[in-house]
Design a protein around this nucleic acid. Structure first.
Length: 622
RNA sequence: GGGCCCGUAGCUUAGCCAGGACAGAGUGCCGGCCUUCGGAGCCGGUGGUCGGGGGUUCGAAUCCCCCCGGGCCCGCCA
């Protein structure tokens, strides 16, 4: 129990006693005061059902941390005793201050990023990776056993398209000096665009007037994408186009690759696909390393297929009473009606959940079905909770997944599977498309931000060694500070702007605090500190520091990085303000100096531990 | 057309789920500090019909209804 929580409990006791309201209800309604003049803790009395607000009797005083409770309008506001807070807080400030473990830690698997291994990671994946990494850090900060896993979607149609193009090029090695995922992305895009153009041209003859217009518009888009791709590498582009166009039935060739890979019987196909996929994954890890994102394991879809786990799920579906015929094929009716079940599975009331098609007509599997098998696999590893960090576009398939699990009798798994959804990242007007090869890659973004950091550090004659940490800090902050469900309109300026609202600002502030302590040459003691000096901004800082454990707990439990970011920034703001007009080391009075040093120590710990949870490196020098 | 998400200062955004005190920041713009224990800083000013309209309530940015705008989904893709 932290100091601030003790203080809150005292206030709750007082309010509960005087109003007769239930203590747990009061605890729910108590907030940190939103303005200095209203004290430190507040509770709106009407929210407790108290109509006639009474002034507090004198006898209510005498608590340790609550010095005074005042009635103001319809509020009771508590004023905390900064001397008691200060003493209790700094008596034994732990290195791990603010990190509170839950009583019942769980085994939680966080699946994130899981990008198709067919093109380099782009800024959408960057959001996914950083959010996934941060929520993993948050959960493990709370003491949970967290495993981060990357689902390798190597069995789908898209990998088959890439493989097809690669084979058509006679399986070349990537050119020297080119990152493999980027090179594969080019092959994939060209192949896909050519295939789509072919398909549309074929459809065009038999289309009616309105459909024709639609197709032509789509065709224009494809041709434009093709032109852009052509300009990247004419020679490869045309070799690929010619090779594909000489194939009488490319769609069949691709379907063959899917089938052969799934069955695992064709050694040639298996080794080719695996080679390409692993090349892409290597590129991903290289990109993610720069942002400090690591995985505990990569799970290949194909392994689930080859081990028979997907087959088992399909059998369960085939013998399920919910099996239906849908669009001339077998499907699972997943549109559960029971309101309570829908609630538990977070399926919106108004949504008609479409049936889940069990497999393709040629017997090969589909993504969501494979995902059922994968989810069961994750739980079979011992996970009690599974969190999938996946774009909002996939919310319907994620619901189908939960519903399918539930209907197949995997109730516990269905109810403990969560979709951590995030909105799309758009790119200054234009829309990204992995399929058309239109994207800004994570690597490109990283380089842009890095160039900006480098320039800034050169200007200031700063520490060039920390360029990577500052770059990663800037990017992480930009992602972490926006709620996941908000669309992110990415512009480079936002991330390369290192003003007060940025990762580098926090890192810089940390360095300031750290260096004061580093240069102090003395160990301040609480008993010799001057408690009368805790006022004004020093007091504000102290109270902010005291709040840290509560803020951290809440942000981590609710998986809201943006709350932690906002709090850390406030700490940094107040600290920088004091820093500007108050000397610490030059303070001649020993007692006052100790007070200041201890509070700076608190700021240092809060920023250090807070930034670490966000995966932003606290820097001693920058 | 149906469903889901979003709409808060010029721009980015917190507060909305669990309704309460003059809606809080950053950035931009205008003016000041002039290098300090690290200026990636500090101080002041400017800027808001909380998309619009109804309703519920003692009280609505927050809850309910309708409308408007943006995004996403509605494939035997993922």
């Amino acid at each position: 129990m932290s100091v601030i929580e003790d203080a809150i409990r005292e206030f709750v006791e007082i309010v509960a006693r005087v109003t007769g309201a239930d203590a747990s209800k009061v605890a729910q309604e108590v907030t940190f005061s939103n303005r200095e003049e209203f004290g430190d803790l507040s509770v709106a009395l009407p929210s407790l059902g108290v109509k006639n607000v009474q002034a507090l009797p004198e006898s209510l005083q005498g608590k340790k941390f609550v010095r005074l409770v005042k009635k103001e309008k319809v509020y009771y506001n508590a004023y905390l005793d900064e001397k008691e807070i200060f003493e209790s807080l700094f008596q034994n400030l732990s290195e791990f201050y603010g990190i509170t473990k839950v009583d019942n830690p769980k085994y939680i698997i966080v699946e994130h990023t899981s990008a198709n291994p067919i093109h380099p990671l782009h800024i959408g994946h960057m959001r996914n990776a950083i959010l996934g990494d941060i929520i993993s850090r948050m959960l493990s900060c709370r003491g949970h056993k967290v495993e981060r896993r990357f689902y390798v979607n190597d069995a789908g149609r898209q990998v088959a398209i890439l493989t097809y193009g690669y084979i058509k090029l006679n399986k070349p090695d990537p050119p020297v000096g080119v990152k493999a995922d980027s090179w594969l992305g080019f092959i994939y895009s060209v192949t896909n665009v050519v295939l789509e153009i072919r398909k549309i041209k074929g459809e065009l003859n038999s289309a009616d007037e309105s459909r024709r217009a639609e197709l032509i518009k789509r065709l224009d888009e494809l041709v434009a994408a093709a032109a852009t791709l052509e300009s990247r590498d004419r020679e490869t582009f045309y070799r690929l186009v010619d090779a594909i166009n000489s194939d009488p039935d490319p769609e069949k060739s691709i379907a063959d690759i899917v089938r052969k890979y799934e069955s695992g019987t064709d050694k040639e196909i298996v080794s080719t696909v695996r080679k390409l996929v692993d090349m892409a994954l290597k590129g991903f890890q290289e990109s993610l390393d720069k942002l400090g994102v690591k995985f505990d394991g990569f799970d290949y879809e194909s392994d689930l297929l080859w081990r028979g786990e997907v087959k088992k799920v399909i059998e369960e579906m085939m013998s399920s009473p919910y099996r239906i015929t849908y669009k001339d094929t077998l499907a699972l009716e997943v549109n559960v009606q029971d309101e309570r079940v829908r609630d538990a599975l977070e399926i919106p009331k108004g949504l008609e959940l479409p049936p889940l098609v069990i497999m393709r007509s040629d017997g090969t599997s589909l993504y969501t079905t494979r995902d059922v098998a994968y989810t069961l696999y994750k739980f079979s590893r011992g996970a009690e909770v599974v969190i999938n960090v996946i774009a909002e576009q996939q919310s319907v398939p994620q619901m189908q997944l939960r519903a399918a699990l539930y209907l197949l009798g995997h109730k516990r798994e269905a109810e403990n599977l969560f979709h951590y959804s995030y909105a799309m990242v758009s790119l200054q007007g234009s829309k990204m498309s992995g399929r058309l090869g239109k994207y800004v890659s994570l690597d490109e973004v990283y380089e842009l931000v890095k160039a900006s950091v480098e320039q800034k550090i050169n200007e200031k004659g700063g520490n060039r060694e920390v360029i990577p940490e500052v770059t990663s800090g800037a990017i992480r902050y930009a992602i972490a500070s926006v709620s996941a469900n908000k669309q992110l309109n990415f512009n480079v300026k936002t991330v390369t702007d290192f003003e007060q609202n940025s990762g580098p600002y926090l890192q810089y502030t940390y360095a300031r605090a750290y260096n004061i302590l580093d240069k102090a040459n003395e160990e301040p003691s609480v008993s010799e500190a001057d408690p009368n000096y805790i006022k004004g901004d020093w007091r504000n800082l102290l109270i902010l520091i005291a709040k840290f454990p509560v803020v951290m707990k809440k942000a981590c439990d609710e998986l809201r990085p943006e709350d932690l970011v906002a709090y850390l920034r406030e700490v940094a703001d107040v600290f920088n303000k004091v820093y500007n007009y108050e000397r610490v080391l030059q303070e001649p009075d020993r007692g006052k100096r100790f007070t200041k040093l201890l509070i700076v120590k608190g700021v240092e710990r809060v920023l250090h531990n807070g930034l670490s949870v966000l995966g932003i490196t606290p820097l001693k020098r920058m």
